[in-house]
Amino acid sequence: MNPVAEVILSLLLVVSAFFTLVGSLGLVKLSDFFRRLHGPTKATTMGVGCILVVSVFYHALIGNSFHPRELLVSVLLIVTAPISANLLAKAALSLKLKKRPQCPADETPDPEHLDSPADRRPDEL
């Protein structure tokens, strides 16, 4: 294997594994659920995404055929991570882990938007 590519891939691999570790460390270390949510959504997702990118180039350089299939897992993780984070935050808010922050719209209700069916969310989760 090309030594320059090997050094770059090794560095990228170690750095992304470090970020994955930091994501899980944040899960254990921080004291409140909403603080814990930050570590896994960013650090772990991107760490694992970078490991998958390294894997694509490693298999291409080692002599196996070039398959960009691992990128599918990366794309899947990057697309789904914000959705699961959003749902987790919603679930935690519904459990009233913390007092719900008041929506500014609640203070001055706009009568046009209260009952109009057009504003109802189409795919309510």
Binding site: T20, S24, L27, F33, T44, G47, V73, A91, A92
Partner: peptide
């Protein structure tokens, strides 16, 4: 809380993907 467990399970599965790829 139960949401902490769900978050931990999610992180666990993402880490499992990384370990399998490695």
């Amino acid at each position: 809380e139960v949401v902490d467990r769900i978050l931990a399970l999610d992180t666990f599965s993402i880490n499992a993907i990384a370990l399998l790829i490695l």
